[in-house]
């Protein structure tokens, strides 16, 4: 039972985080909270990939053999480096997305004087 939970836990945590982020994006009226939801969604994806890179009995992806500690390299001794690379770039893109979204929010606030969706819609209908 506990083994089953330990083997499945990252996926469940990812599911919960994805839904929390989605709730922030579709259930909240404030645009700032929607951006926060987007950020949480993104973190869920990143954590999913990083948890998928784990290997039983492996260590961090720094090769011992080049440092002169071990003779040869065994790929099973290191965690999967490819998800780390992909998520490294995804984090930076996430920061860029957040920055552009915040600049749009500043621009919207100047235009409408509010960041609430419904007040903005009322303002547009006038």
């Amino acid at each position: 039972m506990i083994d089953e939970v330990a083997a499945r836990f990252p996926y469940w945590a990812t599911a919960v985080l994805i839904v929390v982020g989605l709730y922030g994006m579709i259930g909240k009226r404030s645009l700032v909270k929607q951006v926060i939801g987007l950020s949480i969604f993104q973190s869920a994806i990143i954590l999913f990939f990083v948890s998928g890179s784990l290997l039983e009995g492996a260590t961090l992806p720094i090769l011992y053999s080049v440092h002169g500690v071990a003779e040869h390299v065994d790929p099973d001794d290191y965690v999967n480096p490819l998800p780390h690379v992909l998520m490294l770039t995804a984090i930076v893109v996430g920061v860029a997305i957040t920055g552009v979204a915040l600049s749009f929010l500043v621009s919207i606030y100047r235009e409408f004087g509010t960041l609430d969706e419904r007040e903005m819609l009322d303002e547009m209908r006038k």
Binding site: A96, G99, L102, S103, V106
Partner: peptide
């Protein structure tokens, strides 16, 4: 590139708000 863009984004948003 990363240093310049991150500082640029912060400066612009903080300066405009």
């Amino acid at each position: 590139g990363v240093v310049a863009v991150l500082v640029l984004i912060y400066d612009l948003i903080a300066g405009s708000s």
